[in-house]
Design a protein around this nucleic acid. Structure first.
Lengths: 219, 219
DNA sequence: GTGTCGCTAACTAACGATCGTAAGGCAAGC
DNA sequence: GCTTGCCTTACGATCGTTAGTTAGCGACAC
């Protein structure tokens, strides 16, 4: 595995929250797997490569994880659950008013992608490597998360605060712009995650026809 | 190759322009390769699978293309060249005025992604499978295309017509939202490519603080 | 018209390599 | 003693690609 490959994302640090896995070794395996999946794709990253970087032999990984697919599934499940949790939590904590709700959702969405850029990017590029059976709960989570954002937009449009020529496309735009952050963001960007999400909230509100409104305070 | 996989994009038709390759057989190979790369990833799609679907044996592909990587490179090169060409052409044809320029660029950008959704999506997800050497011209083209959009935004901001809290993030938002179209678009969506790009132009202008301005006429 | 040559595009067979994973074994810790 | 976590060995499978062969077609010469 010494072949130099074309970079498809800016992130180079496979950040995962400490304690995600039940042991240090399992955590290391996930972290290395995430990085190699990001660099080489799921199929392009072999168990021998992952094991070598962890400092063990490939067959030993099976003491910890049942299969290669299981590694990917752990990563993608956590990624989607965390995303969903963050947005739900942000919505629950925000005032029940459409600008505040939208701001909170976008902030959470963008922050997920600045906090876990590599994980977020892999979640989008390597989904195909999951069997339909393994992937369907992940897709269901994704749909649920999207629906939360769509509901916020729908309510805002219904109340007349948001004005859009096409509601679903507004949701697609707001979701998509946040998602792409994962592909270009690195920690040495001139703004931190909070700074970026402030700006993104402003842009999302503009998309919704709320121009020049101050973004929600970030405390 | 009968394993059912999780879908990561909506497009299911590997559209490429007729005459892209120099013979029918070469064209068929590219079309099948595009679809299988999209479904299974570059490494997950084997030459035997591609050959079987074309109706020949894997070794015969080498009469037409030097390597598996060459297949991917042909696809990605065309995708990036076409994208670049369309945006350049649209900018050249539009009036030299920042709203018209931005509108033209966004329209061309979005139309590329509705005309070639599968190719566009694969261009983003499978870049890693190119060696650095093969991929660097592709990345250079990408950077050039981005720079065109960035220049349009910069000029608009400089002239005072566009007002943004962060110029580069506005470029990232506008580019990213168009790019994501490739992942959800299918031809049975309620709007066609023109309809979608009309809306996207409106949203992009809103991001830039030009609210409620009529989008450029699409003749 | 016929035969020959060269080229293209397909084939078969196989190479060297790598793959994910199973089975059996050993050592350390509790 | 049992469990865990590592090892080695190896399996069956697949991979991208090479080398050699064959058939068909078109061009050319006789």
């Amino acid at each position: 595995m010494t072949k130099k490959v074309t970079r498809r994302m800016a992130a180079d640090r496979p950040y995962l929250p400490p304690g995600l896995a039940t042991s240090d070794t399992r955590q290391n395996i996930l972290v290395v797997a995430l990085r190699l999946f990001a660099e080489h794709g799921f199929e392009g990253a072999s168990m021998r490569d992952i094991a070598n970087e962890v400092g063990m032999k490939a067959a030993s990984i099976y003491s910890h994880y049942a299969s290669k697919e299981q590694l990917l599934l752990e990563l993608l499940r956590f990624g989607h659950e965390e995303h969903n949790r963050r947005i739900r939590s942000a919505l629950n904590a925000a005032p029940d008013e459409c600008i505040a709700q939208l701001s909170a959702a976008v902030r959470a969405h963008v922050r997920m992608h600045t906090d876990y850029p590599m994980l977020a990017a892999v979640s989008n590029t390597e989904l195909h490597a999951l069997s339909t059976e393994a992937g369907s709960p992940v897709l269901a989570l994704r749909a649920n998360t999207e629906a939360m954002l769509a509901e916020v937009v729908r309510k805002g449009v219904q109340s007349g605060v948001f004005q859009v020529p096409h509601e679903w496309l507004a949701v697609a735009v707001i979701g998509g712009m946040g998602l792409r952050v994962a592909h270009w963001y690195t920690p040495d960007f001139e703004l931190d995650g909070d700074g970026i999400s402030d700006i993104y909230v402003e842009y999302a509100l503009r998309v919704l026809g709320v121009s020049g409104t101050r973004p929600e305070q970030r405390t």
